[in-house]
């Protein structure tokens, strides 16, 4: 097991190095002069030269690369041109908002996806199965930003039940404690004896969670169904039935644990994707996370910020995939003991 972890960690280093290299050269070799693009057509030669030296663009490419690599290894992603803040600070400020939304979406998608997937597999070729699978296919065919707008149209504009954006009602004058607003809401509930903060945080989470969670939900339901069908065909399920174990227990204790092995990998990958795929959802719901920040950085042509953002998220993505791999080996005794 330790060997397995070390081997996976060893593979991580070249991958991360490759990611840094690719991000650097993508931006460096992009057509056009970044300084010119950032400052616009009206900038004079002096301004351009100043920005170039500020960005290190007057150095030879190989030196630029080594300098960049050195800074990244020290955990320095540079400064944003627009705000002049350290990019790492800007990212960590927004990280928890993105993670909170990714977690609620993953929980929503996993629970509903597994329940629907199991139901579809148990009642194969019934209307439950057909409607779940049709729904799943529609779910993966849907543009997320459109779904978000339709949800707002129905639940915020039409029924006036839920807010259109943000993380908390601004009139509550709220100072974040952990920056997970749901948890903060609970803390405030204990502290002040009123649930307003918690309820507001929850209400603001619902629509973004559904919008962001729909595609993972569809994918998890499909994976669970096919995995469950595969497991229910296995001999050991027959053994359990022949031993008189009640059907409910056969499905939920014996089969499900096996069927969930591939599903857990899928959930992990989807969680990683949600952290990055939130650009559209966060923009629409004015969710102050990394996705929205990257979108604004792109609009403002703030290349150091874009570079830092994509590097940060890719690191995250790679790490989560690693954790999923390790987790899989923990829950699967066949791998664990080898």
């Amino acid at each position: 097991m330790l060997k397995f972890i070390l081997k996976r960690l060893g593979l991580l280093i070249p991958t991360l190095l490759g990611v840094v290299t690719l991000v650097f050269f993508m931006i460096a070799l992009a057509p056009g002069d970044p300084a010119r693009i950032m400052l616009g057509e009206r900038a004079n030669a002096e301004q351009l030269a100043q920005l170039r030296s500020e960005l290190g663009l007057d150095q030879p490419l190989s030196k630029q690369y080594l300098l960049y690599l050195g800074r990244v290894i020290r955990g320095d992603l540079g400064k944003s041109i627009v705000t002049q803040q350290k990019i790492t600070d800007e990212l960590t400020d927004r990280l928890l908002a993105t993670i909170e939304l990714a977690i609620t979406s993953t929980i929503f998608a996993s629970i509903l996806g597994i329940v629907l997937g199991v139901a579809a597999a148990r009642k194969r070729n019934s209307w439950v199965d057909y409607s779940t699978m049709t729904g799943a296919l529609v779910g993966v065919s849907m543009p997320v930003f459109w779904l978000a707008l339709v949800l707002i149209m129905i639940f915020s504009v039409g029924l006036d039940l839920l807010p259109t954006g943000g993380r908390m009602n601004v009139r509550l004058y709220f100072i974040p404690i952990t920056n997970f607003y749901l948890i903060d809401g609970i803390i405030m509930w204990f502290r002040e004896g009123k649930a307003d903060y918690f309820v507001s945080a929850l209400k603001h989470l619902i629509l973004p969670t559904i919008a962001l969670g729909t595609i993972p939900l569809a994918i998890i339901a499909r994976t669970t169904r096919s995995s469950m069908l595969e497991v229910l065909k296995q001999d050991y399920v027959k053994t359990a039935r022949a031993a008189g174990v009640p059907e409910r227990k056969v499905v939920f204790r014996y089969a499900l644990r096996n069927a969930l092995l591939p599903v857990i990998t899928v959930i992990g990958i989807q969680f990683g994707l949600l952290l990055s795929g939130a650009i559209l959802t966060e923009t629409i719901f004015a969710w102050p996370g990394i996705g929205k920040w990257i979108y604004h950085s792109i609009s403002a042509r703030d290349f150091p910020a874009v570079q830092g953002g994509i590097l940060f998220i890719s690191f995250f993505f790679v790490m989560i995939n690693l954790i999923v791999d390790l987790l899989y080996s923990v829950i699967n005794p066949r791998i664990r003991l080898k």
Binding site: Y236, K238, T239, R257, N258, L261, P333
Partner: peptide, 8 residues
């Protein structure tokens, strides 16, 4: 080989 549940 296959008649016993691998995860228990």
């Amino acid at each position: 080989m296959t008649s016993l549940n691998p995860v228990f």
